[in-house]
Design a protein around this nucleic acid. Structure first.
Lengths: 198, 198
DNA sequence: TTACTCATTGAGTATGAACTCAACGAGGTG
DNA sequence: CACCTCGTTGAGTTCATACTCAATGAGTAA
Protein backbone atom coordinates (compact mmCIF):
# COMPACT_ATOMS: atom_id res chain seq x y z
CA UNK A 1 0.00 0.00 0.00
CA UNK A 2 1.40 3.38 -0.97
CA UNK A 3 1.68 6.37 1.33
CA UNK A 4 -1.51 7.97 0.10
CA UNK A 5 -3.65 4.88 0.62
CA UNK A 6 -2.06 4.29 4.00
CA UNK A 7 -2.95 7.84 5.02
CA UNK A 8 -6.51 7.35 3.83
CA UNK A 9 -6.94 4.12 5.74
CA UNK A 10 -5.42 5.69 8.83
CA UNK A 11 -7.88 8.60 8.64
CA UNK A 12 -10.81 6.25 8.20
CA UNK A 13 -9.76 4.14 11.17
CA UNK A 14 -9.17 7.22 13.29
CA UNK A 15 -12.71 8.41 12.55
CA UNK A 16 -14.20 5.01 13.37
CA UNK A 17 -12.25 4.61 16.59
CA UNK A 18 -12.99 8.11 17.86
CA UNK A 19 -16.66 7.87 16.91
CA UNK A 20 -17.03 4.58 18.75
CA UNK A 21 -15.51 6.12 21.86
CA UNK A 22 -17.71 9.21 21.65
CA UNK A 23 -20.81 7.08 21.14
CA UNK A 24 -20.02 5.11 24.29
CA UNK A 25 -19.46 8.31 26.28
CA UNK A 26 -22.11 10.73 24.96
CA UNK A 27 -24.58 8.46 23.24
CA UNK A 28 -25.04 7.94 19.52
CA UNK A 29 -27.75 10.55 18.93
CA UNK A 30 -26.08 13.39 20.78
CA UNK A 31 -22.72 12.84 19.09
CA UNK A 32 -22.68 15.20 16.12
CA UNK A 33 -20.60 14.69 12.99
CA UNK A 34 -18.67 17.87 13.77
CA UNK A 35 -17.79 16.49 17.23
CA UNK A 36 -16.38 13.35 15.66
CA UNK A 37 -14.39 15.33 13.09
CA UNK A 38 -12.93 17.65 15.73
CA UNK A 39 -12.05 14.81 18.10
CA UNK A 40 -10.45 12.87 15.24
CA UNK A 41 -8.51 15.97 14.19
CA UNK A 42 -9.86 16.03 10.65
CA UNK A 43 -12.01 18.48 8.70
CA UNK A 44 -15.76 18.09 8.82
CA UNK A 45 -15.86 17.35 5.12
CA UNK A 46 -13.31 14.55 5.42
CA UNK A 47 -15.82 12.55 7.40
CA UNK A 48 -18.24 12.64 4.47
CA UNK A 49 -15.61 11.63 1.97
CA UNK A 50 -15.16 8.43 3.99
CA UNK A 51 -18.82 7.84 4.88
CA UNK A 52 -21.56 9.00 2.54
CA UNK A 53 -23.92 9.74 5.43
CA UNK A 54 -23.85 9.82 9.21
CA UNK A 55 -26.09 6.74 9.27
CA UNK A 56 -23.55 4.76 7.26
CA UNK A 57 -20.85 5.69 9.76
CA UNK A 58 -23.05 4.57 12.65
CA UNK A 59 -23.90 1.34 10.86
CA UNK A 60 -20.24 0.63 10.14
CA UNK A 61 -19.33 1.05 13.79
CA UNK A 62 -22.25 -0.98 15.12
CA UNK A 63 -21.53 -3.74 12.64
CA UNK A 64 -17.89 -3.93 13.62
CA UNK A 65 -18.61 -3.83 17.34
CA UNK A 66 -21.38 -6.44 17.22
CA UNK A 67 -19.30 -8.74 15.03
CA UNK A 68 -16.34 -8.44 17.39
CA UNK A 69 -18.54 -9.08 20.39
CA UNK A 70 -20.16 -12.13 18.90
CA UNK A 71 -16.83 -13.53 17.72
CA UNK A 72 -15.22 -12.96 21.11
CA UNK A 73 -18.17 -14.60 22.86
CA UNK A 74 -18.18 -17.68 20.64
CA UNK A 75 -14.38 -18.08 20.83
CA UNK A 76 -14.36 -18.02 24.62
CA UNK A 77 -17.25 -20.41 24.92
CA UNK A 78 -16.57 -23.27 22.59
CA UNK A 79 -16.65 -26.39 24.77
CA UNK A 80 -17.52 -24.66 28.01
CA UNK A 81 -19.87 -25.72 30.77
CA UNK A 82 -23.15 -23.79 30.90
CA UNK A 83 -22.47 -21.76 34.02
CA UNK A 84 -19.14 -20.68 32.53
CA UNK A 85 -20.96 -19.55 29.40
CA UNK A 86 -23.25 -17.29 31.43
CA UNK A 87 -20.34 -16.03 33.47
CA UNK A 88 -18.23 -15.16 30.49
CA UNK A 89 -21.20 -13.54 28.74
CA UNK A 90 -21.68 -11.27 31.73
CA UNK A 91 -17.94 -10.56 31.94
CA UNK A 92 -17.81 -9.69 28.26
CA UNK A 93 -20.80 -7.39 28.67
CA UNK A 94 -19.10 -5.67 31.60
CA UNK A 95 -16.08 -5.06 29.40
CA UNK A 96 -18.16 -3.48 26.61
CA UNK A 97 -20.85 -2.09 28.89
CA UNK A 98 -20.63 1.65 28.14
CA UNK A 99 -21.14 0.98 24.45
CA UNK A 100 -23.93 -1.57 24.76
CA UNK A 101 -25.66 0.45 27.41
CA UNK A 102 -25.90 3.28 24.87
CA UNK A 103 -26.98 0.88 22.14
CA UNK A 104 -29.95 -0.44 24.10
CA UNK A 105 -30.85 2.97 25.47
CA UNK A 106 -31.05 4.40 21.97
CA UNK A 107 -32.37 1.30 20.24
CA UNK A 108 -35.70 2.95 19.54
CA UNK A 109 -34.16 6.04 17.96
CA UNK A 110 -31.77 4.54 15.45
CA UNK A 111 -33.22 3.52 12.10
CA UNK A 112 -34.92 0.22 11.34
CA UNK A 113 -31.83 -1.32 9.69
CA UNK A 114 -29.61 -0.71 12.65
CA UNK A 115 -32.27 -1.92 15.06
CA UNK A 116 -32.66 -5.18 13.14
CA UNK A 117 -28.88 -5.58 13.09
CA UNK A 118 -28.63 -5.25 16.86
CA UNK A 119 -31.61 -7.45 17.63
CA UNK A 120 -30.37 -10.07 15.17
CA UNK A 121 -26.88 -10.27 16.64
CA UNK A 122 -28.15 -10.57 20.17
CA UNK A 123 -30.69 -13.20 19.22
CA UNK A 124 -27.88 -15.34 17.84
CA UNK A 125 -26.12 -15.14 21.17
CA UNK A 126 -29.36 -15.87 23.00
CA UNK A 127 -29.96 -18.93 20.83
CA UNK A 128 -26.46 -20.16 21.49
CA UNK A 129 -26.94 -19.75 25.25
CA UNK A 130 -30.29 -21.53 25.05
CA UNK A 131 -28.62 -24.40 23.19
CA UNK A 132 -25.94 -24.70 25.89
CA UNK A 133 -28.65 -24.52 28.55
CA UNK A 134 -30.65 -27.37 27.06
CA UNK A 135 -27.51 -29.50 26.79
CA UNK A 136 -26.73 -28.76 30.41
CA UNK A 137 -30.23 -29.68 31.55
CA UNK A 138 -30.34 -32.99 29.70
CA UNK A 139 -26.75 -33.88 30.69
CA UNK A 140 -27.69 -33.44 34.34
CA UNK A 141 -31.17 -34.89 34.09
CA UNK A 142 -32.77 -31.68 35.31
CA UNK A 143 -36.29 -30.77 34.29
CA UNK A 144 -37.23 -27.17 35.04
CA UNK A 145 -40.65 -25.94 36.10
CA UNK A 146 -40.60 -23.27 33.38
CA UNK A 147 -39.69 -23.95 29.77
CA UNK A 148 -35.95 -23.50 29.10
CA UNK A 149 -36.55 -20.87 26.42
CA UNK A 150 -38.71 -18.86 28.82
CA UNK A 151 -35.92 -18.94 31.40
CA UNK A 152 -33.25 -17.80 28.94
CA UNK A 153 -35.50 -15.11 27.44
CA UNK A 154 -36.15 -13.97 30.96
CA UNK A 155 -32.45 -13.63 31.77
CA UNK A 156 -31.77 -11.81 28.49
CA UNK A 157 -34.70 -9.46 29.11
CA UNK A 158 -33.23 -8.55 32.46
CA UNK A 159 -29.72 -8.06 31.06
CA UNK A 160 -31.02 -5.76 28.33
CA UNK A 161 -33.21 -3.90 30.81
CA UNK A 162 -30.24 -3.33 33.11
CA UNK A 163 -28.08 -2.07 30.25
CA UNK A 164 -30.93 0.22 29.22
CA UNK A 165 -31.40 1.57 32.74
CA UNK A 166 -27.74 1.88 33.68
CA UNK A 167 -27.78 5.66 33.50
CA UNK A 168 -31.21 6.11 35.07
CA UNK A 169 -30.34 3.81 37.97
CA UNK A 170 -27.22 5.93 38.25
CA UNK A 171 -24.56 3.25 38.08
CA UNK A 172 -21.21 4.95 37.71
CA UNK A 173 -19.47 1.59 37.48
CA UNK A 174 -20.86 -1.53 35.86
CA UNK A 175 -24.54 -2.30 36.39
CA UNK A 176 -24.06 -5.82 35.03
CA UNK A 177 -21.40 -6.39 37.68
CA UNK A 178 -23.73 -4.93 40.31
CA UNK A 179 -26.62 -7.16 39.26
CA UNK A 180 -24.55 -10.25 38.44
CA UNK A 181 -25.21 -12.06 41.72
CA UNK A 182 -28.95 -11.33 41.46
CA UNK A 183 -29.02 -12.65 37.92
CA UNK A 184 -27.18 -15.85 38.82
CA UNK A 185 -29.43 -16.32 41.86
CA UNK A 186 -32.57 -15.94 39.77
CA UNK A 187 -31.20 -18.29 37.15
CA UNK A 188 -30.28 -20.97 39.70
CA UNK A 189 -33.64 -20.53 41.35
CA UNK A 190 -35.34 -21.18 38.04
CA UNK A 191 -33.19 -24.24 37.43
CA UNK A 192 -33.22 -25.83 40.85
CA UNK A 193 -36.35 -24.26 42.36
CA UNK A 194 -36.47 -22.93 45.92
CA UNK A 195 -33.73 -25.20 47.13
CA UNK A 196 -35.91 -28.31 47.20
CA UNK A 197 -34.74 -30.12 44.07
CA UNK A 198 -31.09 -30.02 45.01
CA UNK B 1 -66.31 31.70 33.01
CA UNK B 2 -66.92 34.05 30.05
CA UNK B 3 -66.97 33.01 26.42
CA UNK B 4 -63.40 34.10 25.76
CA UNK B 5 -61.93 32.17 28.70
CA UNK B 6 -64.02 29.15 27.82
CA UNK B 7 -62.66 29.26 24.27
CA UNK B 8 -59.12 29.58 25.57
CA UNK B 9 -59.51 26.61 27.90
CA UNK B 10 -61.10 24.57 25.14
CA UNK B 11 -58.18 25.31 22.82
CA UNK B 12 -55.68 24.38 25.49
CA UNK B 13 -57.45 21.10 26.22
CA UNK B 14 -57.74 20.30 22.53
CA UNK B 15 -53.99 20.77 22.13
CA UNK B 16 -53.24 18.56 25.14
CA UNK B 17 -55.63 15.81 24.07
CA UNK B 18 -54.45 15.70 20.49
CA UNK B 19 -50.79 15.84 21.50
CA UNK B 20 -51.26 12.94 23.91
CA UNK B 21 -52.86 10.87 21.16
CA UNK B 22 -50.13 11.73 18.65
CA UNK B 23 -47.42 10.89 21.19
CA UNK B 24 -48.96 7.46 21.76
CA UNK B 25 -49.16 6.81 18.02
CA UNK B 26 -46.00 8.37 16.58
CA UNK B 27 -43.75 8.73 19.61
CA UNK B 28 -42.92 11.88 21.50
CA UNK B 29 -39.74 12.83 19.66
CA UNK B 30 -41.09 12.42 16.16
CA UNK B 31 -44.26 14.39 16.86
CA UNK B 32 -43.49 17.95 15.77
CA UNK B 33 -45.22 21.04 17.13
CA UNK B 34 -46.63 21.76 13.68
CA UNK B 35 -48.17 18.26 13.58
CA UNK B 36 -49.91 18.90 16.87
CA UNK B 37 -51.17 22.31 15.76
CA UNK B 38 -52.51 20.94 12.48
CA UNK B 39 -54.18 17.95 14.12
CA UNK B 40 -55.73 20.21 16.75
CA UNK B 41 -56.93 22.60 14.05
CA UNK B 42 -55.15 25.65 15.47
CA UNK B 43 -52.36 27.87 14.19
CA UNK B 44 -48.79 26.92 14.96
CA UNK B 45 -48.35 30.07 17.01
CA UNK B 46 -51.38 29.30 19.17
CA UNK B 47 -49.55 26.33 20.59
CA UNK B 48 -46.80 28.60 21.89
CA UNK B 49 -49.23 31.06 23.41
CA UNK B 50 -50.51 28.19 25.57
CA UNK B 51 -47.17 26.49 26.23
CA UNK B 52 -43.98 28.55 26.34
CA UNK B 53 -41.91 25.70 24.88
CA UNK B 54 -42.44 22.26 23.42
CA UNK B 55 -40.82 20.74 26.51
CA UNK B 56 -43.39 22.38 28.76
CA UNK B 57 -46.19 20.89 26.66
CA UNK B 58 -44.60 17.44 26.90
CA UNK B 59 -44.12 17.83 30.62
CA UNK B 60 -47.74 18.93 31.10
CA UNK B 61 -49.01 15.88 29.25
CA UNK B 62 -46.71 13.42 31.00
CA UNK B 63 -47.58 14.90 34.36
CA UNK B 64 -51.29 14.62 33.74
CA UNK B 65 -51.07 11.11 32.36
CA UNK B 66 -48.84 9.81 35.15
CA UNK B 67 -50.98 11.45 37.81
CA UNK B 68 -54.13 9.92 36.30
CA UNK B 69 -52.50 6.54 36.07
CA UNK B 70 -51.29 6.58 39.66
CA UNK B 71 -54.64 7.84 40.94
CA UNK B 72 -56.56 5.22 38.97
CA UNK B 73 -54.23 2.49 40.23
CA UNK B 74 -54.50 3.51 43.87
CA UNK B 75 -58.29 3.91 43.68
CA UNK B 76 -58.82 0.45 42.26
CA UNK B 77 -56.50 -1.16 44.74
CA UNK B 78 -57.37 0.16 48.15
CA UNK B 79 -58.16 -2.91 50.26
CA UNK B 80 -57.42 -5.46 47.59
CA UNK B 81 -55.71 -8.82 47.86
CA UNK B 82 -52.17 -8.92 46.46
CA UNK B 83 -52.88 -10.99 43.36
CA UNK B 84 -55.71 -8.63 42.47
CA UNK B 85 -53.30 -5.71 42.80
CA UNK B 86 -50.91 -7.26 40.29
CA UNK B 87 -53.77 -8.18 38.01
CA UNK B 88 -55.28 -4.73 37.99
CA UNK B 89 -51.85 -3.13 37.52
CA UNK B 90 -51.36 -5.23 34.41
CA UNK B 91 -54.89 -4.48 33.19
CA UNK B 92 -54.37 -0.76 33.70
CA UNK B 93 -51.08 -0.95 31.80
CA UNK B 94 -52.80 -2.75 28.94
CA UNK B 95 -55.34 0.07 28.77
CA UNK B 96 -52.64 2.76 28.61
CA UNK B 97 -50.06 0.62 26.84
CA UNK B 98 -49.48 2.63 23.63
CA UNK B 99 -48.64 5.71 25.66
CA UNK B 100 -46.42 4.03 28.24
CA UNK B 101 -44.71 1.95 25.63
CA UNK B 102 -43.63 5.20 23.98
CA UNK B 103 -42.66 6.71 27.32
CA UNK B 104 -40.26 3.90 28.19
CA UNK B 105 -38.95 3.62 24.67
CA UNK B 106 -38.02 7.29 24.64
CA UNK B 107 -37.08 7.59 28.28
CA UNK B 108 -33.45 8.17 27.42
CA UNK B 109 -34.19 10.99 24.98
CA UNK B 110 -36.48 13.22 27.00
CA UNK B 111 -34.81 15.68 29.32
CA UNK B 112 -33.65 14.94 32.85
CA UNK B 113 -36.71 16.53 34.49
CA UNK B 114 -39.17 14.41 32.57
CA UNK B 115 -37.11 11.30 33.15
CA UNK B 116 -37.07 11.90 36.88
CA UNK B 117 -40.80 12.51 36.81
CA UNK B 118 -41.51 9.20 35.10
CA UNK B 119 -39.12 7.18 37.25
CA UNK B 120 -40.47 8.82 40.41
CA UNK B 121 -44.11 8.06 39.60
CA UNK B 122 -43.40 4.45 38.77
CA UNK B 123 -41.28 3.97 41.86
CA UNK B 124 -44.25 5.07 43.99
CA UNK B 125 -46.38 2.40 42.37
CA UNK B 126 -43.58 -0.14 42.80
CA UNK B 127 -43.29 0.73 46.50
CA UNK B 128 -47.03 0.37 46.95
CA UNK B 129 -46.99 -3.05 45.27
CA UNK B 130 -44.04 -4.10 47.43
CA UNK B 131 -45.94 -3.02 50.53
CA UNK B 132 -48.96 -5.10 49.49
CA UNK B 133 -46.65 -8.01 48.70
CA UNK B 134 -45.03 -7.95 52.14
CA UNK B 135 -48.46 -7.81 53.81
CA UNK B 136 -49.57 -10.75 51.71
CA UNK B 137 -46.47 -12.79 52.61
CA UNK B 138 -46.76 -12.21 56.34
CA UNK B 139 -50.55 -12.73 56.37
CA UNK B 140 -50.04 -16.14 54.76
CA UNK B 141 -46.88 -17.04 56.65
CA UNK B 142 -44.88 -17.41 53.44
CA UNK B 143 -41.13 -16.82 53.41
CA UNK B 144 -39.66 -16.49 49.93
CA UNK B 145 -36.24 -17.72 48.86
CA UNK B 146 -35.41 -14.32 47.39
CA UNK B 147 -35.96 -11.03 49.18
CA UNK B 148 -39.44 -9.57 48.51
CA UNK B 149 -37.99 -6.33 47.12
CA UNK B 150 -35.82 -8.28 44.68
CA UNK B 151 -38.89 -10.15 43.47
CA UNK B 152 -40.96 -7.00 42.94
CA UNK B 153 -38.06 -5.15 41.30
CA UNK B 154 -37.67 -8.15 39.05
CA UNK B 155 -41.32 -8.07 37.97
CA UNK B 156 -41.22 -4.31 37.37
CA UNK B 157 -38.01 -4.64 35.37
CA UNK B 158 -39.69 -7.16 33.13
CA UNK B 159 -42.82 -5.04 32.72
CA UNK B 160 -40.79 -2.00 31.74
CA UNK B 161 -38.64 -4.08 29.43
CA UNK B 162 -41.70 -5.44 27.67
CA UNK B 163 -43.20 -1.97 27.26
CA UNK B 164 -39.87 -0.81 25.89
CA UNK B 165 -39.60 -3.70 23.43
CA UNK B 166 -43.23 -3.75 22.34
CA UNK B 167 -42.45 -2.34 18.91
CA UNK B 168 -39.25 -4.28 18.38
CA UNK B 169 -40.90 -7.57 19.35
CA UNK B 170 -43.57 -6.53 16.87
CA UNK B 171 -46.65 -6.78 19.06
CA UNK B 172 -49.55 -5.21 17.18
CA UNK B 173 -51.83 -5.79 20.16
CA UNK B 174 -50.86 -5.62 23.81
CA UNK B 175 -47.49 -7.07 24.80
CA UNK B 176 -48.44 -6.90 28.47
CA UNK B 177 -51.48 -9.04 27.71
CA UNK B 178 -49.28 -11.41 25.71
CA UNK B 179 -46.76 -11.73 28.53
CA UNK B 180 -49.24 -11.63 31.42
CA UNK B 181 -49.35 -15.37 32.00
CA UNK B 182 -45.55 -15.60 31.91
CA UNK B 183 -45.27 -12.78 34.41
CA UNK B 184 -47.79 -14.32 36.79
CA UNK B 185 -46.09 -17.71 36.42
CA UNK B 186 -42.68 -16.26 37.26
CA UNK B 187 -44.12 -14.36 40.19
CA UNK B 188 -45.85 -17.43 41.62
CA UNK B 189 -42.72 -19.46 41.07
CA UNK B 190 -40.75 -16.92 43.08
CA UNK B 191 -43.35 -16.97 45.86
CA UNK B 192 -44.08 -20.66 46.09
CA UNK B 193 -40.93 -22.13 44.54
CA UNK B 194 -41.05 -25.02 42.08
CA UNK B 195 -44.31 -26.34 43.45
CA UNK B 196 -42.77 -27.74 46.64
CA UNK B 197 -43.86 -25.22 49.28
CA UNK B 198 -47.50 -25.28 48.40
C1' DT C 1 -72.32 52.14 19.87
C1' DT C 2 -67.48 52.73 20.69
C1' DA C 3 -63.21 51.75 22.43
C1' DC C 4 -60.42 48.42 24.29
C1' DT C 5 -58.63 43.57 25.25
C1' DC C 6 -56.63 39.49 24.12
C1' DA C 7 -56.74 34.78 21.92
C1' DT C 8 -55.57 33.52 17.44
C1' DT C 9 -53.15 33.63 13.07
C1' DG C 10 -49.34 32.28 9.96
C1' DA C 11 -45.58 34.22 7.49
C1' DG C 12 -41.15 35.11 9.07
C1' DT C 13 -36.79 34.33 12.01
C1' DA C 14 -33.22 31.81 14.42
C1' DT C 15 -30.69 27.89 15.16
C1' DG C 16 -28.50 23.64 14.69
C1' DA C 17 -26.80 20.05 12.16
C1' DA C 18 -26.07 17.19 8.02
C1' DC C 19 -24.05 17.56 3.84
C1' DT C 20 -21.46 20.00 -0.52
C1' DC C 21 -17.81 21.55 -3.38
C1' DA C 22 -14.18 24.45 -5.30
C1' DA C 23 -9.55 25.10 -3.98
C1' DC C 24 -5.30 23.26 -2.14
C1' DG C 25 -1.19 20.69 -1.97
C1' DA C 26 1.25 16.32 -0.86
C1' DG C 27 2.08 12.18 -3.31
C1' DG C 28 2.49 9.51 -7.38
C1' DT C 29 3.94 8.88 -12.38
C1' DG C 30 6.15 9.64 -16.94
C1' DC D 1 11.05 18.26 -13.49
C1' DA D 2 6.23 18.72 -15.08
C1' DC D 3 1.94 17.20 -14.80
C1' DC D 4 -1.74 14.61 -12.83
C1' DT D 5 -4.37 12.40 -9.01
C1' DC D 6 -6.96 12.49 -5.15
C1' DG D 7 -7.40 12.90 -0.01
C1' DT D 8 -8.23 16.87 2.69
C1' DT D 9 -10.07 21.35 3.88
C1' DG D 10 -13.67 24.47 5.82
C1' DA D 11 -16.69 28.08 4.47
C1' DG D 12 -21.07 27.84 2.50
C1' DT D 13 -25.70 25.58 1.48
C1' DT D 14 -29.80 23.26 2.62
C1' DC D 15 -33.18 21.74 5.42
C1' DA D 16 -35.94 20.86 9.43
C1' DT D 17 -38.09 22.63 13.22
C1' DA D 18 -38.80 25.36 17.39
C1' DC D 19 -40.16 29.78 18.33
C1' DT D 20 -41.70 35.11 17.33
C1' DC D 21 -44.60 38.98 16.52
C1' DA D 22 -47.41 42.36 14.07
C1' DA D 23 -51.97 42.08 12.33
C1' DT D 24 -56.75 40.54 12.90
C1' DG D 25 -61.23 40.34 14.65
C1' DA D 26 -64.41 38.35 18.03
C1' DG D 27 -65.65 39.29 22.78
C1' DT D 28 -66.26 42.53 26.63
C1' DA D 29 -67.34 46.67 29.16
C1' DA D 30 -68.63 51.68 29.50
Amino acid sequence: MNKRDAQKTATRNKIIDIAEKLFAIQGIVSTKTIDIAKAAGVAHGTLFSHFETRDILVETILNRKLEDFQKQFLEINSNQEFHCVINSLLDLLVEHEPFFSVVFRELSIVNQNLRNLIVYRFSIIELYVLHMFENFLSANGISTAMKPEVIIQHIFSLIIHYLNFREILNYKESIILGKKDDLIEVLNFMIYGGGCNE
